[in-house]
Every structure is written in C-alpha cells, then in structure tokens.
C-alpha cells in the first residue's frame, strides 16, 4: 500500500471501510464530488498497479 498516495488511500478507506458514498466522502473531506470520483478512479488504478507489482492477480 506504500504505492498509494495519502489522498488515494483516504478515499478508499472512506468508501470501503466506513461505507460512505462518493457524495458523503465529498462532504466529509470538503471537496467536489467530481474530484472524489476522479480520485477514487485513480486510487483503484494505483491499487491495481500496486497489486500487480507485488505479484497479486489484480
């Protein structure tokens, strides 16, 4: 997970652990919902790359 930036980890944690919707995350971190969705998209991509680098079948 070291490959993920803090902001990427933040949106994934809020989405997957706290179960917040993208709109709720936007409200929580005081950012436009479009930014949150873009950030989540790139976070998932970064996660995929990180898993692949570590030999997991992403």
């Amino acid at each position: 997970m070291r490959g993920l930036s803090e902001k990427h980890r933040q949106v994934l944690v809020l989405a997957y652990d706290e179960g917040l919707t993208q709109s709720q995350i936007a409200e929580r971190i005081d950012a436009p919902v479009g930014t949150v969705k873009t950030r989540t998209f790139h976070a998932l991509r970064a996660m995929r790359e990180d898993l692949t680098r570590r030999g997991f079948d992403a």
Binding site: A15, Q22, K37, T40, F41, L44
Partner: peptide, 9 residues
C-alpha cells in the same frame, strides 16, 4: 470514468 466509479461502488 465518473459513472464507472459509481458502477464499481
């Protein structure tokens, strides 16, 4: 990509 994220979630 916006709707893709919402679809995945």
């Amino acid at each position: 990509h916006d709707r893709l994220v919402l679809y995945l979630l």
